[in-house]
Simulated assay, not measured.
Amino acid sequence: MPADPSEKPRRITVTKDGPVLVEGPVEVLLDDGTSATSDRFTVALCTCRRSRAYPWCDTSHRRRDKGCR
């Protein structure tokens, strides 16, 4: 929960066979130690690692027949 009681917690939506949607702004810490930031009101995070814009989803998961896993 946020430290300041007036702040709302971030909403994260997990979608079936697709990206994770996160209310922004966000900073994503990657496994290689770098970070990616976005000030958009909602961002889609890639969960299948097919995105050319990783960690952001570019809908590459739609090209797979059985969905993203």
Rank of each mutant, 00 (worst) to 15 (best):
M1K: 12
P2F: 04
P2E: 02
P2W: 04
P2L: 05
P2N: 02
A3C: 07
D4G: 00
D4P: 04
P5C: 12
S6R: 07
S6T: 14
S6G: 03
E7G: 05
E7R: 10
K8Q: 15
K8W: 00
K8G: 08
R10H: 02
R11W: 04
I12E: 02
I12S: 01
T13P: 00
T13H: 06
T13M: 10
V14E: 14
T15I: 11
T15L: 13
T15H: 07
T15F: 04
K16C: 09
K16R: 14
D17C: 00
G18V: 09
P19N: 04
P19T: 09
V20A: 09
V20Q: 05
L21H: 02
L21W: 02
L21K: 09
L21S: 06
L21Y: 08
V22K: 00
V22H: 03
V22C: 00
V22T: 01
E23H: 01
G24Y: 10
P25S: 00
P25Y: 06
V26W: 00
V26K: 05
V26T: 07
V26F: 03
V28P: 06
V28F: 08
V28L: 13
L29H: 13
L29G: 10
L30Y: 06
L30D: 01
L30I: 02
L30W: 04
D31W: 08
D32M: 12
G33N: 01
T34P: 03
T34A: 05
T34H: 06
S35H: 06
S35C: 07
S35G: 04
T37E: 14
T37A: 13
D39E: 15
D39V: 14
R40F: 05
R40K: 15
R40C: 00
F41Q: 11
F41R: 14
F41V: 10
F41N: 10
V43M: 01
V43I: 02
V43Y: 00
V43Q: 00
V43S: 03
A44P: 06
A44R: 11
L45T: 03
L45Q: 04
L45F: 05
L45N: 01
C46W: 05
C46D: 08
C46A: 02
T47N: 12
C48Q: 13
C48G: 11
C48F: 13
R49N: 11
R49S: 09
R49M: 07
R50P: 05
S51C: 00
R52D: 10
R52A: 10
Y54P: 03
Y54C: 04
Y54H: 10
P55E: 15
W56C: 10
W56T: 06
C57W: 11
D58W: 02
D58F: 08
S60F: 07
S60P: 02
S60R: 07
S60N: 01
H61Y: 11
H61R: 08
R62I: 13
R63H: 13
R64A: 14
R64I: 15
R64N: 14
R64T: 15
D65I: 12
D65S: 11
D65R: 13
D65K: 15
G67V: 09
G67S: 10
G67R: 05
R69G: 09
R69C: 03
